[in-house]
Design a protein around this nucleic acid. Structure first.
Lengths: 257, 257
DNA sequence: TATTATTGTGTCATAACGACGCAATGATAT
DNA sequence: ATATCATTGCGTCGTTATGACACAATAATA
């Protein structure tokens, strides 16, 4: 499905290729050096960072479009990807602003160009293995980089609000679903997965209680190896029990009622 | 914002009024006689029941559009309404089927009429007080009625899948948020609110444990009256403590982590 | 006035949870 | 080689939440 179109082509002919007035934006989370990261694009024509997004081909399933955008940007397939909210404020895009951007690109468009219409966007979030991602900017961006979640202040359009909502959703998901398989390397230590939870929740957890709880779910298992080389006592390595992990994904974790 | 347009006008001129290719559908839940009800429309041109849905005016916030649809159909304002999923399968509507429907209506349209395009729809669910609703069909439907949730087998297009997803979402919400203020009358008994929970969860709950738990949340309070007239011991009446209810709505109920 | 189904209130054992203690370990410094 | 030190492994303890169940109180009806 990937189509290498020039930016000019997209702008001029996009109206024929894509669904009108509808876009999607991806919040791509990674985990590295005990920090949650988000993949952002630096735009060519605006001095702002943005979430990687895209449009939906006229005959494309919307989930597939999200998968495609992710693949184009990270080179990864088979990714944990989830739709979480629709952003439909009528003024979420600024027409004049966009016109200006196009001017900077040296492209003149008709007043009724599809890109100048109001857009409603579907937010997706993805959890990916930081180490595997090869960030790739596209024709409309000059950079594609991981940003530290907590340092992100302002983004293009309403993308900061989209990011915030994604994080909020992720936090809630933590109670219903196992998490980490897509964010951690194959083998990891207990302190590492704890840091992941702490980072998402933005909250300190007791080391011993965390271990008891995460093990009680049953979707991670201890290996017979330890991670040597650290400054202190070598921690055990763990890995996900994929069978139980997927079972837990389907059936949910607890659910009070 | 309400516009009384004839069905013909909508079909012919809708393209100028509404956002293209985007619709919304509402799953309106009510509770009556210990049963969960869903408000459905009987369509004029197709022999099928459908969820009340609508389109988004070109300058209208999508949440506002959902509110409007709900108001038009139920006569209710200030409703609990929540977006829960986007349905974006490219084949979710059948073009030929739609053409046939229009034929039945005696309306001939161009091949590129906006209604014949592919539509992506945003699902909303609403919780309303059954007793207050005045179901109103619109120009494209011949009936608007409450249906018993468990008797609904098949619906128009993919509306059954939308309904199922709404119910699944509602079940999950039960763990995070107080519920019932929008579904129950002002005063209610403990068995009544328990039935509500049991109906949503489709699961029996222990009477005594339920009471202990629901009271521990603090958002309902016991009144000094009892409901006399029943065949047996008169149960106490309860009402929602709106202040604590709203606080719980914002902060969430428990959240294991 | 007795009957009956339902409601109000409580108990009990078990499981889950939060806070914390202490010994084991493995690299580093002496 | 040995002591040091931060970190890890593995527990305890008291409190709270949960599931299962017992029994008395009550209001309409027979």
């Amino acid at each position: 499905m990937k189509q290498e179109t020039s930016i000019k082509d997209t702008i001029l002919k996009g109206g024929k290729l894509f669904m009108p007035s509808l876009s999607l934006d991806c919040v791509i989370f990674g985990f590295h050096e005990n920090e949650l990261k988000v993949l952002l694009l630096k735009m060519k024509s605006a001095d702002a960072w943005a979430l990687p997004g895209g449009f939906i081909y006229k005959d494309e399933h919307i989930e597939e479009a999200a998968t495609r955008v992710l693949r184009e940007r990270t080179g990864i397939q088979d990714i944990f990807l989830r739709q979480f909210h629709v952003f439909g404020h009528p003024k979420r895009a600024d027409k004049k602003f966009h016109l200006n951007m196009l001017k900077k690109d040296g492209i003149s468009v008709e007043k009724d160009n599809w890109l100048l219409q109001r857009f409603i966007t579907v937010g997706y979030y993805a959890l990916v293995d930081f180490a595997v991602v090869i960030p790739e900017p596209d024709h409309s961006s000059i950079a594609c980089e991981w940003h530290d979640l907590h340092t992100i202040r302002e983004l293009f359009m309403d993308h900061k609000a989209i990011l915030d909502k994604a994080l909020e959703t992720l936090r809630l998901q933590l109670n219903h679903e196992p998490i980490g398989y897509n964010l951690l390397p194959t083998k990891f230590t207990m302190p590492e997965i704890q840091k992941l939870y702490e980072t998402i929740l933005d909250k300190q957890l007791d080391r011993r209680n965390f271990q008891r709880r995460i093990l009680s779910f049953g979707f991670i298992k201890r290996l017979k190896e330890t991670r040597k080389g650290g400054a202190h006592k070598a921690p055990y390595l763990y890995s996900f029990d994929l069978k139980k992990y997927k079972k837990a994904l389907q059936e949910g974790l607890q659910g009070a009622w």
